[in-house]
Simulated assay, not measured.
Amino acid sequence: MSTNDLAIAERVRPQSMSLTVQALEKAGLVGRKPHPTDGRATIIQLTKKGSKTLESIFAVREDWLNAVIVEKLSEDERQDLQKGLSLIKRIIETRE
């Protein structure tokens, strides 16, 4: 995505997103490439390091969530959660 598209998607000002992208680029997590149709624009994309970092973050969050569900919720609560997630999925599918 372009920096402008990212700003729209995240509902922030383009200037704020530019600063964020610059910091991510400095850390080696994203890179820029020319836009395929607009010579004035660039596309921001994850680097390999960025992809690995994101996967690691998601894995940590998933492990934490699984541990909470198993350790803190009763069987009945886990079943209720499953039912709730099924309802949320149905709601999301109505948008498609």
Rank of each mutant, 00 (worst) to 15 (best):
G39Y: 02
I57A: 13
H35T: 10
K52G: 00
V60G: 01
K52M: 06
I44K: 03
F58I: 14
P34E: 13
A41I: 03
P34L: 11
T53M: 12
A59F: 03
T53V: 08
K33C: 12
A41L: 15
G39M: 03
G31R: 15
D38G: 00
G50D: 01
A59Y: 05
K52D: 12
G39Q: 08
G39P: 04
A59Q: 09
T42D: 10
K48H: 09
L46V: 08
D38W: 05
F58H: 10
P36E: 06
T53N: 09
P36Q: 04
H35K: 07
K33I: 15
V60A: 13
V60K: 12
Q45V: 14
H35E: 09
G39T: 09
I43K: 06
H35V: 08
I57V: 15
S51K: 15
G39C: 00
G50N: 02
D38F: 09
K49L: 11
A59C: 03
L54S: 04
K52Y: 05
T42F: 11
E55Y: 01
I57M: 12
G50L: 00
V60L: 10
K48S: 11
T37P: 00
G50E: 01
D38P: 03
A59S: 11
A59K: 10
E55W: 00
E55T: 01
T47Y: 07
L54T: 04
